[in-house]
Design a protein around this nucleic acid. Structure first.
Lengths: 340, 340
DNA sequence: CTGAAAGCGCTTACAG
DNA sequence: CTGAAAGCGCTTACAG
């Protein structure tokens, strides 16, 4: 029992294959009656167009690609990507586009995957995640003329379109909130250096603290893992004039930081205030629940997907600024201890 | 500048397109010298076979599909799937197979996706996750003759091959450990009812507790989310004879349970012991770190992928039992309070 | 409005 | 060992 093709439909309907193609794709060239008859037959025999044949005839592959360059353990624990992916998916499946996923070991491997996908005509476009300050993927994608959507920015995207959000502004909101609570000794546990959004946040933090006269403000670079986040926290809390508030670049590190504080006998928020970036459900899983900078990540992904499809279609697409993350105060923040 | 095809290579090498195909695919029919020359040219001009053309010529699509049927927020926070996916990926990319992912709303939508993928010849096979007791996907896949690998079991997979692990045995290890510590009042916060592995664990728990004479043992059904897991914990800890130990069906619920205990002023493990299922990095992120039942999930995924490709290739594949999860004791378990 | 035909870029029998 | 050719299942000008 072979899979039905347009030839089968054409035979049944007594028309040519071309007519079937026109009818099924909603193109002019067939009468309304014929079209209806053809569609009915297609449904009856459970017809699905062979995607390979379609792609080969110059049409699109109807698939876009997403590469993830993080080690397995980190990926699993980082809610950001899965939330992003489900948003991307929602948009793609509404348009019958498939998502091809590949987990890679390093950015060079990512480039190789892009080349292969495009060479094989396996995808019509790709997403670029984890944008770096000097990102080697950008010029390669430009040269390949592979339609792409950068998730990150602003800037550093060459001629590629992107979606981004203002992390600097979000950081300011968080730090000003801590200052309003009375904190002077504020530290930050940063994400992986080299990633653009990490650098943007670091610069915003440094600038703001200088402006506010918070001379002890310091960023400890980390790598988004709980392990490193915990270690950075231990170091900060062991220093002679320990911070009274710590801002973390993701929620995983913030939770690890909370555990370290508890382990060291510090009470949160009485002795230490904690603010997380990325307000995933994790933040409300712990006690006290974490004050966090959050925004709608699935919506961000959906936006990126919609715009990538526009780029694929050849429509003009300009850079898009998504909503800025906003602060949700919860139990992990409060005034600093009296004697500070 | 068009993408190079085998015709370009054939022209350059002064051979037929057929010869190029044979040479590149390592098939007999060309001399070693010709083969080498052709391969060199292919590399030089950056040739990648068009995957659509290949698929259309009867070869495989070189892609397999994975559907995920969980809401966005749950997916993001549940490390299991990303770990599974990265294991699957590792195996697939080593064989140049792509992974096509789709997030769906419900099992019926999953079936529709399977039908479409197979009809479109977009995938050569699919994974089946979150196996249910009476899983409607199984008979559909059998009827479609779509190569599939069930991740779950044992049993309930019809004629489809599967990979599974003995959750009953793992549960016994965890409960016996708690009993050895002196616990009598042991409760369990279970995962989503209807999922096969949830049911297997529930039955194992009920049977074992009956055998051990733990008359107060109870399973509170939940849904794997932190929210529900916390709620179930609150209910258990508010009962007149509250449990001294709780076993959770995943780590997310266990962490939520830990937070509820802290919020209620109970000390872990002095007042309450906690055991998590799924030993993701989350378990070592909190304080105290969670005693957990863990196993190598990426390896599980890699195994499933290897075997799915075997099914696709038409090789005989029988059911495979993966390693049983083992218990890693950490700070969240200890003897029960004296007066119990 | 419809039919017949070429072509997408491969793979694979079939001759030489 | 190699070449010429058919065919996979669509799409899309091109005639009628």
């Amino acid at each position: 029992m072979k899979r039905p093709t347009i030839a089968d439909i054409a035979r049944r309907a007594g028309v040519s294959k071309g007519a079937v193609s026109y009818a099924l794709n909603g193109l002019p060239g067939v009468s309304a009656a014929t079209r209806q008859r053809i569609i009915a037959i297609a449904q009856e025999i459970g017809f699905n167009p062979n995607s390979a044949a379609r792609a080969l005839s110059g049409a699109a592959a109807n698939a876009v690609g997403l590469t993830l360059c993080r080690p397995a353990r980190t990926l699993g624990i980082e809610p950001f990507f899965m939330e992003l992916i489900s948003g991307v998916e929602a948009e793609l499946s509404a348009r019958s586009y498939a998502l091809t996923l590949q987990v890679v070991a390093d950015p060079e491997a990512e480039i190789a995957v892009f080349r292969r996908w495009w060479g094989e005509r396996r995808v019509d476009g790709v997403f670029v995640c984890d944008l770096r300050v000097d990102d080697r993927r950008i010029p390669v994608l430009e040269r390949l003329q592979l339609p792409a959507m950068v998730i990150g920015g602003p800037g550093h995207t060459g001629t590629l379109a992107n979606v981004w959000c203002d992390d600097g502004a979000a950081l300011v909101e968080a730090v000003e909130y801590l200052v309003a609570l009375g904190h002077h000794r504020i530290a930050r546990v940063g994400g992986l250096p080299g990633l653009l959004h990490t650098e943007i946040r670091t610069r915003a933090f440094t600038d703001l603290c200088a402006r506010l006269g918070l001379s002890r403000a310091v960023t400890v670079p980390s790598d988004y893992t709980g392990e490193e986040g915990g270690r950075a926290t231990r170091r900060l809390l062991s220093s002679p004039e320990r911070p009274t508030a710590i801002l973390y670049d993701n929620d995983v590190m913030a939770i690890a930081g909370l555990a370290v504080a508890q382990e060291m006998g510090l009470s949160v928020p009485a002795d230490l205030s904690i603010v997380a970036w990325d307000d995933s459900a994790l933040c409300q899983l712990v006690h006290p629940a974490l004050t966090a900078l959050g925004r709608d990540i699935p919506a961000y992904g959906a936006n990126a997907a919609r715009r990538l499809l526009a780029v694929v279609a050849g429509d003009p697409v300009d850079d898009f600024q998504d909503q800025t993350a906003h602060l949700t105060p919860r139990g992990s923040t409060g005034p600093p201890p009296r004697d500070t």
